[in-house]
């Protein structure tokens, strides 16, 4: 679905992307993770034909991104970026109706898209009266209207509260189950962990790690079993057969409050790999 090879982007004397390569297969939810200024938005802009790369190749739907500016290709993808806008004087419904007509989708899809972002009861509300979070949800609904094959989302839940983020996440999972490939940028590692089948860590324009979240956690986990005892003590034992007897003793004496493995979060792994916090 997306194939990027040795992508570079230079702004004046600043290199925003260095030799970036990755592939996104059909049906995947691909997370492009990194802190602000790491090059995530630049990558989305290149992939959606809004910006030209300095060198390297970027293909979407098997064609170079420079060829994406035809009606046929634009009908196949949807985009929500930080600079997407809505018509403030119009209602939510009128905003979505414009795009339903542009994409040639039925007006019934407006209600379905609004329901997926939990805004079905607000469709007659003027956009100027919406909060930032609600505006973000309308933008998402707009991108979902035509059920795109490929959806580009740039920090889709950055302005949302946890309840609405969860609602959006469920909607995106459902969309992905229905076959939409999702390319998501975020600095929210929980979001990436929850949604993505593949993640790339982008730091200062360089992809430093690329794998499945499950594999990364396995690779970076500490080989330790933690035991929290009822008397308040916490023990750490090596994750080896030799620890089994000691653990069994604590259990048989009914001393154990909780047993756990020390699995890192994607955030922990990012910090370990890049030496940078995700801000």
């Amino acid at each position: 679905m997306i194939e990027v090879k040795s992508l570079e982007k230079i702004f004046g004397d600043k290199q925003a992307l260095h030799d970036v390569s990755f592939q996104v297969k059909k049906g995947e939810t691909f997370g492009f993770l990194g802190p602000s200024g790491s090059g995530k938005t630049t990558t989305i802009k290149i992939l959606t034909g809004q910006m030209r790369q300095s060198s390297g190749t970027a293909n979407v739907f098997g064609v170079p991104v420079s060829k994406l500016n035809t009606s046929e290709y634009r009908k196949r993808f949807g985009v929500v970026t930080d600079n997407s806008g809505l018509y403030a004087r119009l209602t939510i419904y009128d905003n979505l109706k414009l795009y339903a007509d542009l994409y040639g989708t039925s007006l019934q899809r407006i209600d379905e898209a609004l329901e997926s972002v939990n805004l079905d009861s607000e469709k007659k509300t003027q956009v100027a009266k919406l909060s930032k979070g609600m505006t973000q949800r309308v933008l998402l609904a707009r991108a979902l209207l035509h059920k795109p094959e490929l959806l580009f989302l740039d920090e889709p839940t950055s302005a949302l509260d946890p309840a609405n983020s969860k609602h959006i996440h469920n909607g995106l999972k459902e969309l992905n189950r229905q076959g939409t490939t999702i390319f998501l940028t975020t600095h929210d590692m929980e979001e990436a962990d929850h949604l993505c089948s593949q993640v790339a860590f982008l730091n200062k324009g360089v992809v430093q790690l690329l794998d499945e979240p499950k594999q990364l956690k396995k690779q970076y986990r500490e080989e330790i079993i933690g035991i929290e005892l009822k008397d308040g003590r916490e023990l750490e034992l090596p994750l080896k057969a030799s620890s089994a007897e000691e653990i069994q003793q604590y259990i048989s004496r009914e001393m154990v409050e909780r047993i756990y493995t020390k699995e890192p979060t994607l955030g922990d792994i990012f910090v370990e790999v890049t030496g940078r916090e995700l801000v």
């Binding site: 959606t48 034909g49 809004q50 046929e72 009908k75 985009v79 600079n83 806008g85 795009y99 994409y103």
Partner: peptide, 10 residues
């Protein structure tokens, strides 16, 4: 930023 939305539409 609504013009860009139109430009990215069909």
């Amino acid at each position: 930023n609504t013009l860009r939305g139109l430009m990215l539409s069909p």
